[in-house]
Computed example of a mutant assay.
Amino acid sequence: MSSTETRRHRVQVLGPHQVDAAAETLRGGGLLAFPTETVYGLGADATNGEAVARIFAAKGRPSFNPLIVHVVDIAAAEEFAMFDAAARDLAMHFWPGPLTLVLPLRKGHRLSPLVTAGLDTVAVRVPASPLARDLLAAVGGPVAAPSANPSGRVSATRAAHVVDGLGDRIDGVLDGGPCAVGLESTILRATPLALLREGGLAAEEIKALLGRTLPRDVTPGKVQAPGQLSSHYAPGRPVRMGVTVADPTAVLLGFGDIAGDLNLSPTGDMVEAAANLFDHFHAIDALAASLGKVRIDVAPVPETGLGRAINDRLRRAAAPRP
């Protein structure tokens, strides 16, 4: 029996019909991976400090990196976060969906301080996945959930990715199939308004709603939101971007007319490329290992629409490891 198969037997994988059992795991202080439309999240009761601490331990995640809190609706978010008029408009327009808002904490909130990493703001969103929202409704409270992968590694877009990366460190996985978006949520700071992370909601859509240019603060000196570490989303081998010709020492992740060993989207469709990004990263890393290749090369992806978010993840994957 392989090590992967051994680990698969150590974690309970629940089907979509087992939402109540999944919710009980979270209410009992356990760690449960669950699907959203973006990626799988590693959930814990956001008001239970010991449970939240287990997230950091399971992921090997730096304590200064805050977590996103997932809730079932705006009313649930208002219990611990404060909305101004602009933030409320954004939430009303884009929730449920792949937008995370960084909002001021409400006085008297019950969230564990570990969730906010000592900041006076909290990152919160309402996921669009019906299964995720059913789970949140069954839990009846906020669920802190970063991506369900070891810190700095490729995010999980399938239950099998979670099991392979974290299967012996968590209590369960709610299997909802592959994630539809496949790219983490876009993160906006509400006050002052700024884009903190490109993601599954294109900045153009937000700009269209606001009617003005969206200020950007995607890699600040101080981490203000999840996913802002310079080295992140890394597979097991070094990554080189902008490659158009195959190298015999590397595998090539293609895009459009550059076929590669795997292709994010043969037609150059950004939505398809975003949905495939992490799944293909897992697959091409395994392919490189099987072929004895030393690097992952990636074909150029245009810096337009979701391409900016894709390239953001690629740059972080290619950054020097700490």
Rank of each mutant, 00 (worst) to 15 (best):
E184G: 07
A128S: 14
V271E: 12
G200N: 09
L201V: 03
P226M: 04
A75Q: 15
P35T: 02
G236I: 12
R61C: 08
T4K: 10
A234I: 07
E50Q: 12
A190S: 15
K107E: 15
V71C: 10
V271M: 09
V223Y: 03
G242E: 15
L214N: 06
A137T: 13
A76P: 05
A91K: 00
D285G: 01
R237C: 04
A225F: 07
V251K: 06
A283E: 12
G242F: 13
A250W: 07
E79H: 10
E37H: 00
N149I: 08
L119H: 12
R88A: 04
L135W: 03
N276Q: 14
L114D: 00
V115Q: 06
L214T: 06
A132F: 10
E204F: 07
H280Q: 14
R189T: 02
D297H: 13
L209Y: 12
G256T: 10
F281W: 12
R153L: 10
R133E: 03
A57W: 11
V218G: 00
D279G: 06
V126P: 05
P302R: 03
P215L: 14
A286F: 02
A286W: 10
I206T: 00
A208G: 03
A156G: 01
H161A: 07
A156S: 15
A288D: 06
K59H: 03
G15V: 07
G97L: 11
D45K: 02
E205A: 12
R315I: 10
Y233I: 08
G41V: 08
K222Y: 00
D20L: 05
P238L: 09
I258L: 11
N263Q: 06
P300L: 14
A85T: 13
V251S: 01
P150S: 09
D257E: 14
A160C: 09
R88V: 02
G29H: 07
L210Y: 10
A299W: 09
F281R: 01
P235L: 11
A85G: 05
R237D: 01
G268F: 14
A51S: 09
H232P: 11
K107V: 15
T304I: 14
L99G: 05
T213P: 02
E272Q: 13
L135F: 05
A145Y: 05
V126K: 01
D20M: 08
G167N: 02
L314A: 03
H109T: 12
T47N: 02
V298D: 07
P150W: 03
F278K: 02
V115I: 11
R106N: 09
F34V: 05
V223K: 05
S129G: 04
F94R: 05
D269H: 07
L183Y: 03
S3A: 13
N311R: 14
A274Q: 02
R7Y: 06
I170K: 01
P113I: 12
L314R: 00
D73V: 12
A23Q: 02
A273S: 14
P96G: 04
V245A: 15
G152A: 11
S185H: 05
T6R: 13
R189G: 09
A299R: 01
Q228H: 03
V154Y: 06
G211C: 13
H93R: 15
I74P: 00
A318H: 10
A246D: 12
R27V: 01
A117L: 14
G211R: 12
R27C: 07
P235F: 04
L101I: 11
L252V: 06
G30S: 10
F80Q: 02
G200M: 08
E5A: 11
R125T: 06
K222C: 04
H161N: 08
R10V: 09
G305C: 08
A128G: 13
